[in-house]
Design a protein around this nucleic acid. Structure first.
Lengths: 304, 304
DNA sequence: TTCTCTTGTTTCAATATTGAAACATGAATA
DNA sequence: TATTCATGTTTCAATATTGAAACAAGAGAA
């Protein structure tokens, strides 16, 4: 249960919390509460982080926000994960060309985290802030679930089974194979999935799903087949398509992140959709290639 | 002396060390040594960092490297420090246009850290890796020293006074005013400064300058006037110019980072140099503007 | 293969960190 | 201005973390 370092975790909690709100400043009290530490401990930890410029401390207001130290670490990380720069370029190209939204999402510490986004802020509330964390539960993260290992998929499915209607759950399981086969995700974005996307934003370091669990469970139970996944192109109503996602792979053939196209117009035609999908897949392939990534061979299906 | 959290510092040491070598992997033993922790502690800290995906742990080799968690934090930081994206674009433009090298360097936790670079890898050894940390001592960091507050400048000057020849030190002090007045840095890059640039790379978390201090002191003593700073354009031999740097400012009129142009050809003419300077200053101004930065009013000079 | 040596992992006494509560400070309100 | 309240900072007993050393597990050499 615990060969992990609690003091270390709390440092990461602080960083993670602030990274989830990159443009905001927080007081000691805020951060202490959000990360479930005592004011005294938070104080010392925050001073230490600020001392190293990992956080910026506003001398007057005594508020904390992301510091240049973390910026520097992030830029250094780009040297290792060069693909993300390429992805950002591809995303910019795609969204400019198609006037859609695109985001890159990775599975980090069990949560879905927005690594990058491109495209107009879109009419309704800025849906995806970079740094935002969402719970890895249906209907989010299907693209990750489809290509991730058992350690990811099993809890994902277990949770889904507990809350989804039996038929919808069965479809989810089947959909994972479908996604692997066709190489991308296709889902409707209706009322329930819309609400879920809002409701699953991870705010704190620890408090997490404790209080919201019941409401979440109810919402998930209302998910429809189409929100989980849409079937083959020639079997669906094209106008229902809400988002498309395609995976980017690392050198060890595991999924690095997904590229998600959203904000599809309700005037969508099959032809346009096919063009969007093609564009997304090309972009994802380009990024995978740039990362020396390897597309995994499709695992043996139950469909013999 | 210590209202700081030691456990927190060590976490940052680990991250900082790995960020200094973004593309490499290190064993537990390596990291334990570099950060001066016991294997037992390093073990727990590293497992915790890896558990949160802040580090990537190679399951077989049991090596650690930067993880996607830090990548995500870094991307989130870009939301706050938007200027860096602009800087990267400007740097790319500048270097493509002028076929030089350009890097962006910030003062972080007392060290000079490379945030970004652009331009050809240049003939000799890749001089500036993103993530690399250098000691903030002459002749490096003049641009930061010129615009930083007393808490930065005083130790900088104190150190310089201790090692520099008296005349060179006097020139350094004078140069800070000159730099503020003309708005940019101009320095020769000769034998000594070249060696110093190599020698001041911060490798570890703690070991730092302990062993190398005497050698460093000797080198610094050999610095020449021109390596510290070159005087007004019409008073110098243009071909001696080794690098130019200009500051980018934040909203509170403090320096955020500097843009450094280097790799100037020895065939440099005054006209070309003026064009380079102009280009660099325009880029820096553009970045400052994009960050809502404010150029500080030049402080009262001793020259009345 | 066997041996040697390095590295990763676990243990447990010694010790440094932690958090409740008291205190200090300053902002907002009356 | 005086008062209230929330926030940041410090203190010190209680406690969780730490690191030396022992152990386990491999990699490489003989």
């Amino acid at each position: 249960m615990s060969d992990l370092s609690h003091p270390t975790s709390r440092v990461l909690d602080v960083i993670t919390f602030l990274a989830g709100h990159p443009t905001e400043e927080f007081s000691l009290a805020d951060i202490a509460q959000q990360t479930a530490m005592s004011k005294a401990s938070a104080h010392r930890v925050l001073l230490t982080l600020a001392d190293a410029d990992f956080l910026a401390r506003h001398a007057k207001r005594k508020t904390y926000s992301l510091g240049m130290g973390l910026l520097a670490v992030g830029q250094a990380s780009l040297e290792k994960y060069r693909g993300l720069d390429v992805a950002r370029a591809e995303m910019a190209r795609l969204t400019a060309e198609l006037s859609l939204q695109c985001s890159a999402t990775a599975l980090i510490g069990g949560d879905l985290v927005i690594l990058a986004r491109a495209g107009m802020p879109q009419s309704h509330e800025g849906l995806a802030r970079v740094g935002e964390r969402r719970l890895m539960i249906p209907p989010m993260g299907m693209c990750h679930a489809a290509w991730a290992g058992a350690s990811i998929v099993e809890p994902y499915l277990a949770f889904a089974k507990q809350h989804l209607k039996a038929k919808v759950y069965a479809w989810l399981v089947e959909a994972l194979g479908l996604i692997r086969r066709r190489g991308y995700t296709l889902a409707a974005h209706d009322s329930t999935s819309r609400q879920l996307q809002q409701a699953t934003v991870v705010s704190a370091g620890r408090s997490r799903d404790a209080a919201r669990a019941p409401a979440l469970g109810r919402l998930i139970g209302e998910l429809t087949r189409n929100e989980i996944q849409l079937a083959e192109l020639d079997h669906i109503d094209v106008r229902r398509v809400g988002q498309i996602a395609a995976p980017v792979f690392t050198a060890d053939a595991s999924i690095a992140f997904q590229l998600v196209l959203s904000g599809l117009p309700s005037t969508l035609t099959l032809k346009k959709l096919q063009r969007y999908i093609e564009g997304l897949l090309v972009a994802a392939a380009a990024v995978t290639h740039q990362m020396n990534g390897v597309v995994p061979t499709v695992r043996t299906e139950k469909v013999r």
